[in-house]
Structure formats: C-alpha cells, structure tokens
C-alpha cells in the first residue's frame, strides 16, 4: 500500500477513487509517565514518555486507516492528514484520514 500526504503519486495514475478512509484512537497517559514528566518539567528537555505515547497512537490510527482502505480494495491512500483533539484531561484522540484510491503504474 502506497501512503502519501500529497494529492498525486509520481509514476502512477489514479484510476479509481474509493472515498475517505479513517482511523482513530483515544489514548490516556498513565501516572508513571506523568510523574517522570513532572520531574522533567523542572529542568526542561524532551518528554520521551509522551513522545512514545504519540508514536504509539499514531501507529494505531494509521493501522486502522490502512485496514479500512484494504476493506475497500484500494492499493494507495493519498492526502493523508492528522488531527488531534483532547477528550478529557489526560486523554486525547489522534485521528488519521485520507482518500483511498486505486493506482496503476504509468507506462514509460
């Protein structure tokens, strides 16, 4: 599956547009990470626990989006976008969406 966040794929032609595909996940951060982040907040620097949390949520959302595209029989997703929204304190949603399409390689 080719996944891009542009509208077109060089070397490929879009022959069929299947429609929007999406995947989301709501994740809560846990107390251990909060304590570590609270300490790190005194001296500054990267909050690795929270970065990992974002990475995990993003992978999960993208996987769900890929599954959705596979169900539709697409072989590529174009114009992928991400948004996040906070649900309650300590939990947030990561949403990935794009347009599922069928592409064929362009002849020389």
């Amino acid at each position: 599956m080719i996944v891009v966040n542009t509208d077109a794929i060089p070397g490929h032609r879009i022959v069929e547009v299947k429609g929007i595909v999406q995947g989301n996940t709501v994740r809560a951060k846990h107390a251990g990470r909060d304590i570590a982040a609270g300490l790190k907040n005194l001296v500054g620097g990267e909050l690795k626990g929270y970065t990992e949390l974002l990475t995990e949520s993003r992978q999960e959302a993208v996987n769900r989006m890929l599954n959705h595209a596979q169900q539709l029989g697409a072989n590529a997703i174009v114009s992928v976008r991400f948004t996040t929204s906070s649900i309650t304190s300590g939990a947030s949603e990561l949403y990935a969406y794009g347009t599922a399409v069928t592409v064929v390689p362009e002849g020389p």
């Binding site: 077109a8 005194l42 909050l47």
Partner: peptide, 26 residues
C-alpha cells in the same frame, strides 16, 4: 503539495511521520 522534479523510475514515495514533545523548565 506537488513533487519537485520527481524521479518516476524510483520506488514510489512514502509518507513519513514524526512526533516530538518538549518540556519547558522551571
């Protein structure tokens, strides 16, 4: 949104994502 001088013979492009969370200090 468009590719600048893409090499159409190369393998198809792929989306890359990165995350970063940086804390303030006291």
């Amino acid at each position: 949104k468009t590719f600048h001088q893409p090499n159409s013979q190369a393998s198809p492009p792929m989306m890359l994502v990165s995350e970063v969370v940086i804390s303030s200090d006291y």
